[in-house]
Write a protein that binds this DNA or RNA. Sequence first.
DNA 1: TCCTTCATTGGAACCGCTTCCAGTCGACCA
DNA 2: TGGTCGACTGGAAGCGGTTCCAATGAAGGA
Lengths: 340, 340
Amino acid sequence: MEAVPSTPARIADVAAHAGVGIATVSRVLNERGNVAAATRARVLEAIRILEYRPSSVAQALSLKRTLVIGVVLPFLTEASPIERVRGVVTALAASPYDLALYDVESADRQQRAFRLLADAHRTDGLLVVSLVPPDEEVRRLRAGSIPCVLIDAHHGTLPSVVIDDIAGGELATRYLLELGHRRIAFIGDKPSDPFRRQSSRDRTIGYERALTAASVPVQRDYVREGTQSRHLARNIAEELLRLPEPPSAMFAASDVQALGVLEAARGLGIDVPGQLSVIGFDDIEIASYVGLTTIRQPLFESGRRGAELLLQALQGEPAPVHVETLPLDLVVRGTTRPPR
Amino acid sequence: MEAVPSTPARIADVAAHAGVGIATVSRVLNERGNVAAATRARVLEAIRILEYRPSSVAQALSLKRTLVIGVVLPFLTEASPIERVRGVVTALAASPYDLALYDVESADRQQRAFRLLADAHRTDGLLVVSLVPPDEEVRRLRAGSIPCVLIDAHHGTLPSVVIDDIAGGELATRYLLELGHRRIAFIGDKPSDPFRRQSSRDRTIGYERALTAASVPVQRDYVREGTQSRHLARNIAEELLRLPEPPSAMFAASDVQALGVLEAARGLGIDVPGQLSVIGFDDIEIASYVGLTTIRQPLFESGRRGAELLLQALQGEPAPVHVETLPLDLVVRGTTRPPR
DNA sequence: TCCTTCATTGGAACCGCTTCCAGTCGACCA
DNA sequence: TGGTCGACTGGAAGCGGTTCCAATGAAGGA
């Protein structure tokens, strides 16, 4: 039985044990070649005996890279960001990079996270989800030459992976229009939300555009906003359904909100899709369970793709500041039907 | 306008700019005191001008701590681990620690993750979720004196945060028995799953124990196993419902599986809870939406608590190898009712 | 007035690894 | 057989911090 040292071995210990210089050990470790087979064997044996593992911290300092990729995102609470993270994890699995997660629920957390990450040392690259880093931090990142890819967000000088939210809003709305609906309500994010997603606003634009294209006037009281929560969406939907002239269809800017709508309808004894059609956005896991008609956006894929772009940039490839737009699909399930 | 240096400033730059030694800058940075107010001001000014941020990598090397906590977990795919991670994130938010995420979907990923983490340098502490690290790695962690807390898993020599799965299984089953059910089926995880959770097996034990206590014989063909997926659970539930003498109630080892059961019932036109009662386990977000009766386990809390214990250990407090058992609650909603 | 005390300060060692660079030495060629 | 070449090898200089320790000098006490 080989003795286990009480303190982890350092490269010098290995060198001493093998009777070689530390440079040689390093060469063996990094397969730099130029090491005699016999020497190599002795070193490997010493490594085995001492259970030596190089300190990644020391390597990071020496090589000026950490092999860590930071992922900054708000709303870890929700289903869709999680799907994106899964995509990132998958893409990173085959790489030597670790993933550090920064959830920013509040504005100051956000501040802190970016500050931390822009310190040019903690991570080699950054993936920012559904958030636009302040210009100041973008400048810092650039100064530290830390590549950064945005997912579900736009910035003039950063590559990003997005969907066309306007088109998505149009797609959903047009579908409802084609079914014959004319009284179509929209439930999106609240503009006052500091984290308000651009995406929600764009979906609103798409919604209005589709209505206009179909010569259906946009009614102010059919366009409502709450935060990304089922509960709030439910309240809003209830209000809408109690209107003198309630909508015959609702387009929610996210599936989570659509669930709130369904709940409201259920609570009020309103049949879906008999009396009310509902369409969501995202196609999260539960959507298929509930049979929700929705616009599918490739969440998992967005994370994977973003991570791939970042890895490329990390490889030194000249990752152009390009915007990659992922496709959207209308997924028709059971919550939509022509109006009576 | 102050010039922004092209390359990030190092502590020596600050020292030079302020006309002091680097030791003094470090003292200011770490508020070690013993620095004249005027000197301090000059240093701070230099830091501001140069936009200096200490390199955490260099600090890590020098201080022998990384300020990173690793979280290892399988099934990032699923709702419940995510809830736990949220708890961890919350607990860590107030601390100076970052969170590195290691998702282990396969056995070799698992191997790799533990290997990486036990290298004694990458993280200061480890949180392992729903997984038991191999003894070999536990030894390594101990050798590197990296504290480790288990969540939803047991190990003789490591502190952990768990629930009493046996009691949970009993609680669910007893409730069904009290409603008057006698033909109660159980759907759990497959034993052949390499990641199979101990928890599922324990719930089975609780299930059997409750039946036995009520003098209801355990029927082999009422106890089924699949993996943690809605789809498989659905298939299994369909089989059960097609039995000559189908169960009047089903206890699923997780809410996700319970959803599969509900789906099966819906597909077969079987009314829940009219003809079939269903109870799940976990109380994930959707459960309340669907109105699923379930056993609530504090997922978020488990992550928070685990992180707290780890932080304590990191503070040098003698974290005893204790097992913290979190409480379970029966949450009665709409999917259970006495049999006809 | 001289010495001790103590707040300040900076030099230098060290954390553990990579790598440049110079030195060794046997092999091969003319 | 002398010289050149090239495969190996190890010393030492960073990477960017922290901190021990000695040095400086002004203030306080005898």
